[in-house]
Structure formats: C-alpha cells, structure tokens
C-alpha cells in the first residue's frame, strides 16, 4: 500500500502531530511519502525521515499559500495521481478537516476523522474513531479503494530512528478557481505551545476569578512546558481568547496530562478532555463533578496550591 502523509509546520518547525502521522503511516506500509510546504531547514526535513518517511515532496514555491484550503486540496490530489497513493494520513487540524473532505471527493476516497488507533487490516480496513465528542468510539470500515484518515494526537509514538529522506522539490499546478479564496492575514500568538500540539495542557476556569490571575496558570504551564487552555465561560467572558477554549464547542484535546484548575467539570467541558491519558483536578469544592473524571485530585484554593505546585515542579525538574 502506498501511503502519503500531509505535513504541517508552524514557525519553521514541523508540527509534532504531523510527525506522529508519519510514524502512523510507517507502521502501515514501507516507502511512505510525505508532502510539506514552505521554507524549512534540512534538519527539520530530516525529522520527517526519522519519523519513518522515505521520500519528502517539498513545495518551495513562495507564491503557494500553504493555508489556502482550495490550493492545498488541489496539490494533494495531484500527488495522489503522480505517486499512485492509496492511503493518505493527516494529523487532525483546522486545515486537515476541510482539506481532507475536499480531497476525498476529488479522489473518490473513503474518509474517517478522529482516528485513535492503527487500522485493523485483517479483514478489509477498519479503524477506531472517537465519536460523541469523546464519549464513545466507532469501529469503522473504509470501503473504497482509496482512503483518507485524520488521526488524533497520541495515537502512536513518534519514531526517531528512520534515515534521512529523499527530498524532491514539488511544484503544484494551481487551478484558477483556487484563487477565489484570498487569505489576507493570520493573527496568532507566537512562541507559545499550540494547544492541540501540547503533551501537557494547564487549563483555568471561573475559579481563577479574573484574567488578571492567569499568571499563575502561565507559570505552571511554563514549568511543565505545557500549553494553556480555559473553560467556555472564561472564553465567553473574554478573559482568554477563543482558541484556548477547551470543550464540546471548543478545542478537543488528547494530551498525556491535563491539569484543570478552578473548573467544575460540566459535561460539555469533560467531552473535550476525556481522551487525556492523565487528568489532575484542583478545585476548592470537593463536590465538583470533575473529580469523578480525574486520576489525581487536590481539594484546595488554587491561589495557594498553584504557586506551591509550580515551585515543586521546578525543583523536581532541576
């Protein structure tokens, strides 16, 4: 089976979620091809090889817009044809969702999102995917010859032992109709760990009492090299930006560790985090429903517990 992996980068670095997709593909078949856009150092491109790809198609054309849903979809379909691809793997993201859908129609492919495990190929091609916002899973069979998967974070570990890949410059043929979409600008925080990429997430809720107290959350996140998140009320009140809202109608995360501070644990919030491997809840209310979904809990005042915890982690990490 010939497998293509669509790679995303951020600020010159290959996203970890994309490297995970490469390692996922390498588990399925030899000779994985990866496709990547933009200016990247060769050390970054080599990471794709280390994760398991044999060949990297590098789009270096500076006129190509790597966030243009239409242009990216057209370019991927071109690679599908040129490389005789049977399966494409992408890390789930705000770009992968709309792009995978368009490509599935172009290629007449079966598409499954939110995949959580390697496929079972004993009898056809069946994957497990998360549904009902993490409240259940569905074993789903892909019935077309061509297949596309978007995988969720923490599905497989990232490989590091592959050899340097063959790097080939790839020139996409743009279609005139792709220019109907004009990407004017991007407004994003720089330097921060992106929430869906993070192995550890520290989230705050209304218990923090106001945006001025977020320094405590940021300090703990910095000590753990974690991303920061928040509950829906916090983003609704504009204490924190919407892209930090974790939950049913916000970002769904599946990190190794999720730390919830001053969040009561409404079912809509739990839905966005219940795929985390370990959950820590810190709340002064011992009856907070979040404790039922947690692995470790502390009943206490965030304003006292957080500084102590941050300090203890700094000491433990040396």
């Amino acid at each position: 089976m010939k497998v293509l992996v669509f790679i995303e980068s951020d600020e010159g670095k290959i996203k970890k979620s994309s490297l995970e997709a490469v390692s996922y593909a390498a588990e399925i078949a030899q000779g994985t091809v990866a496709m990547v856009f933009g200016v990247l150092e060769s050390s970054e491109l080599n990471k794709i090889g280390a994760a398991g790809a044999k060949k990297v198609l590098h789009v270096t054309d500076s006129d190509f817009e790597p966030s243009n849903i239409m242009a990216v979809s057209t370019a991927i379909a071109q690679v599908f044809e040129a490389e005789d691809i049977e399966l494409m793997v992408m890390a789930k993201s705000s770009l992968a969702d709309p792009v995978s859908a368009r490509v599935s129609i172009k290629m007449d492919a079966s598409l499954v999102s939110n995949v959580t495990e390697l496929p079972d190929m004993a009898n056809g091609f069946t994957v497990n995917r998360s549904i009902y916002t993490g409240k259940a899973f569905a074993k789903t069979k892909l019935t077309s010859d061509k297949k596309i998967l978007t995988i969720r974070k923490n599905t497989v570990p990232i490989g590091e032992n592959g050899s340097d890949p063959e790097i080939v410059v790839f020139q996409p043929n743009s279609k005139g109709s792709d220019a109907a979409v004009k990407v004017l600008s991007q407004e994003k925080t720089s330097g921060d760990i992106l929430l869906p990429e993070a192995d550890i997430v520290v989230s705050g809720g209304r218990g923090l009492k106001g945006p001025e107290n977020w320094g405590m959350i940021e300090d703990l996140a910095a000590a753990l090299a974690a991303a920061t998140g928040c509950s829906k009320p916090v983003s609704d009140m504009d204490w924190r930006p919407h892209h930090e809202h974790v939950g049913q109608t916000g970002v769904k995360v599946s990190p190794t560790l999720y730390i919830a501070v001053g969040i009561s644990g409404a079912i809509q919030h739990l839905a966005g985090v219940n795929s985390s491997k370990f959950i820590v809840v810190i709340n002064k209310d011992p009856e907070a429903p979040f404790f039922k979904a947690a692995d470790y809990g502390i009943v206490g005042d965030a304003f006292e517990v957080l500084p102590q915890l941050t300090k203890a982690i700094q000491v433990a990490k040396g």
């Binding site: 599935s104 492919a109 079966s110 598409l111 499954v112 069946t126 497990n128 549904i131 993490g134 409240k135 259940a136 899973f137 569905a138 074993k139 789903t140 069979k141 892909l142 019935t143 077309s144 219940n274 795929s275 809840v281 404790f291 039922k292 979904a293 947690a294 692995d295 470790y296 809990g297 502390i298 009943v299 206490g300 005042d301 006292e304 517990v305």
Partner: peptide
C-alpha cells in the same frame, strides 16, 4: 456510502481518583 460502522465501543472507565492533600 463509503464508510460503515461495524460496532460502537464505550471508553474504559477511569480506575478511580487518588486524592492528595493540598
């Protein structure tokens, strides 16, 4: 259709919380 759900699976229950003194 291009995908078929074979069966649903419920997530494994958490093994229980460990409480830690503040």
């Amino acid at each position: 259709q291009k995908t078929v759900v074979e069966n649903f699976v419920m997530p494994a229950a958490k093994s229980g919380i460990k409480m830690i003194d503040a």
